[in-house]
Design a protein around this nucleic acid. Structure first.
Length: 233
DNA sequence: AGCCAGGCTACCG
DNA sequence: CGGTAGCATGGC
């Protein structure tokens, strides 16, 4: 049964890597130097973050900035914005487009991401503090399935499982899902197999990313992946 | 040098 | 509809 396998894998990953402390925030000064790609802002074991409007907003920006981009690059963009005092929705909207692009160019796709960030910011302001529906988020230009789920799970603490390219890569390699399985189908598999719990979903996705960086970021994928052993039993 | 990064949109058949 | 080119820069 797949449900049992997914739980077994979670326990193994947690044992291997420990709590990951996602989503990283530039305002958080803790460290977790064992993580690959570590820069700053992770808060392992603390599930209370984000704890204010500014932090929620920063996570939303980061979710767009990290699209198809290394987190270290996305984080540098956030730091650049912070230097401009622009990690606040009203301030970011006042930035000239050229200044915004200059701040985020290190995260790539600067032209489209500049547009996406401003649209997402207007959407955030329009919420007036409430939690958005998934459907509403998807209607914002630049927000697709993974970005919407990342925002709901990490910024708004909603139990929405996040699927990313690593998730598909790992679990298809382990023959738990088919290679061509669509986003929603994979998401539903995880959500129907696991307890509906925000902290668990947060850790699971973060652990998948960490595990992928160890065993699935270069071809051939999955060489000596320790998950293979525990699945045979 | 070339591939990969915590994807999404627009357009193609 | 499902599939894919294009988007930009940085790290290794």
């Amino acid at each position: 049964m797949k449900a049992h396998q997914l739980i077994k894998i979670y326990k193994k990953l947690y044992h291997l890597y420990g709590p990951q402390g996602w989503w990283p925030l530039t305002s958080y000064e803790g460290t977790n130097p064992t993580k690959t790609g570590f820069v700053r802002g992770y808060h392992p074991g603390n599930y209370d973050l984000p704890e204010n409007r500014q932090q929620i907003y920063e996570i939303m920006l980061g979710a767009v900035l990290t699209q198809n981009t290394a987190w270290t690059s996305a984080e540098q963009a956030l730091i650049n914005l912070k230097k401009l005092n622009a990690l606040y929705p009203e301030k970011l909207l006042k930035l000239a487009d050229e200044d915004l692009k200059g701040a985020i160019r290190c995260a790539g796709f600067l032209n489209q991401k500049a547009v996406y960030l401003k649209e997402l910011t207007q959407f955030f302001i329009s919420l007036e503090g409430r939690t958005p529906e998934r459907k509403e988020l998807l209607a914002v230009k630049g927000v697709g399935n993974e970005t919407a789920d990342s925002i709901l799970l990490y910024a708004f603490k909603e139990p929405e499982f996040v699927v990313d390219a690593y998730t598909k890569r790992i679990f298809s390699h382990l023959d738990i899902v088919d290679g061509g399985t669509g986003y929603m189908e994979v998401k539903k598999l995880f959500e129907s197999s696991l307890p509906r719990n925000t902290a668990l979903y947060q850790e699971y996705h973060a652990l998948v990313v960490e595990h992928a960086k160890h065993y699935y970021n270069k071809k051939p994928y999955g060489v000596e992946d320790p998950l293979k052993k525990i699945l045979k039993g």
